[in-house]
Design a binder for these strands. Structure first.
Lengths: 129, 129
DNA sequence: CTTGACCTTCCACTGTACTGGAAGGTCCAT
DNA sequence: ATGGACCTTCCAGTACAGTGGAAGGTCAAG
């Protein structure tokens, strides 16, 4: 399977696949006599794993860690559990930050909806912010 | 007021202030005979505005837009209202994405908390992802 | 008169996940 | 033999908001 076919099969681009290889997320592919990369079916699963990891909010660096543990013959279960727990904590923090920000902006937005341009004094940039 | 004092007064760094000037967020400061930047009190307010804008989730580019409108002698009220409304929409989208992601990860995390390593087959990277 | 804190400019780099484009090689059909 | 689709490498750039460091100038205190 050539790189273009793999890209199509996995819904990505050849650029991205080469980037993944260079980043250590995909093992270097076998080469045909022409120099073209020649992928096996495994690659499809591997890229699926990368995509699922991304959908779970893991960074490529974290996904690479899991892959490396697996390559060293270990089962990365507890590591994955740790990563997911960590991610959960980050998400909770991020969500409450965004909710607070939403509250702030919502108030600013409401204030700005009843404009009183007269009260825009020259010494401030904007009455609302 | 020299740049270091302004940095301290506004809780930022000299690097950042020079970066703001270069980015058009701060008007080029007057210079002393020595070549040192010499700031007036205005600068403190201006940087406060930048910080409040950032706290409201605006990008430096958006803050610069507001500043430019103000510099052209117009009151940026309606523009600011637009920006805030837009930001509100983005925030809502971002929050619901994160909530969905949180749900996904939470389920994965729970699955991973009852490990059954026997079922980790060799042909997949990780049973949980 | 020297030390140290502070200032100047300029260039390059950080992290994240790609993306764009140039120059050239390969393969298959017409 | 030629056109087009596909592949190769390498270099550089995107957005964002700064950060790091080198080489050198300025100023007040001791």
């Amino acid at each position: 399977m050539r790189i273009g076919q793999l890209a199509e099969a996995t819904g990505t681009t050849t650029k991205t696949l080469r980037f993944y290889e260079e980043s250590g997320l995909l093992p270097p592919a076998e080469r045909l006599a022409s120099g073209y990369r020649d992928y096996t079916e495994d690659a499809v699963g591997r890229i699926g794993f990368i995509h699922r990891g991304q959908a779970a909010g893991l960074t490529l660096a974290q996904i690479r860690q899991i892959l490396e543990i697996r390559e060293h013959g270990q089962t990365p279960c507890s590591h994955v559990q740790g990563l997911l727990g960590q991610r959960l904590g980050e998400l909770d923090a991020q969500i409450s930050e965004l909710l607070a920000l939403r509250e702030t902006i919502s108030q600013l937005h409401e204030k700005a909806s009843k404009p009183e341009p007269d009260s825009c004094s020259a010494d401030q940039v904007c009455r609302y912010i």
